[in-house]
Design a protein around this nucleic acid. Structure first.
Lengths: 121, 121
DNA sequence: ACAAGTACTTACCCCAGAGTGTGTACCATG
DNA sequence: CATGGTACACACTCTGGGGTAAGTACTTGT
């Protein structure tokens, strides 16, 4: 049990930064390596767990499920499980999630432009 | 000298993820707690190092300078130093940096909407 | 009997990023 | 002569996100 410093800057901020900085708010929701990739996969409609796994072969099962749980907790994706065996679970975007798509497209546009500019010098 | 695993998934990806996922590309440029906050401060024009420090009192000098160096390396901000004493150094947004502003505004809009929705239930 | 598929769960490790603290070189001001 | 301001640099620690690997429960196919 290592003691936790409650007054460390790390702990002080999480909440504060979310309030002051909307970008941080967005980062906390779709940041990390995988979340945005998963959201992107779901842009075309509901996807089964195993579909996502095959669509993103490089991701580990732990990270996939962990990311999905976080996205679900943040109400960006919705999990629907049919009570059958073998399990049949689908994930799809909520309203908030769907509205991320144009935002991500804007990011993609900027990324392309920025990349061009770097190559030009 | 701890040995570094060159074939760890961490190292394999950095480049790969940047190519495949534009969101990751953007994250690598303006991710982390501070970069976007700093960029936001520079939206109104060039800022001195000490101006930024006072504008963001909670940031440490290390993180401020580190973030600025990274932003400079990524060509999002430009550093201009007058050879006088005491030092007079200003930072301002490059063209790529300026084009981030509308993107960040879009993030802010989404953040507000998403936050509303959570409060409603 | 055993592999394979579905959707997870758990334990453990590692490292990059963030935070803490101190030092530097120079000068103006009280 | 010491304090404060400017713009950094460097050494250290700590923590959480991400990665590795293995196990679970249940059924269908060969």
């Amino acid at each position: 049990m290592t003691k936790i410093k409650e007054n460390s800057t790390l702990n002080q901020n999480k909440g504060l930064a979310e309030l002051t900085c909307p970008v941080t708010y967005v980062m906390n929701k779709i940041g990390g390596h995988w979340k945005s990739i998963i959201i992107y996969q779901m842009r075309t409609g509901p996807k089964r767990y195993s579909e996502l796994r095959r669509a993103i072969p490089i991701i580990t099962e732990k990270m996939l499920i962990q990311s999905l749980k976080q996205l679900e907790a943040d109400h960006l994706v919705i999990r629907k499980a049919e009570p059958v065996v073998p399990p049949f679970v689908t994930y799809f975007l909520s309203d908030s999630g769907v509205e991320l798509i144009p935002l991500m497209n804007a990011m993609a546009d900027w990324a392309v432009q920025d990349n061009q500019r770097q190559l030009m010098g």
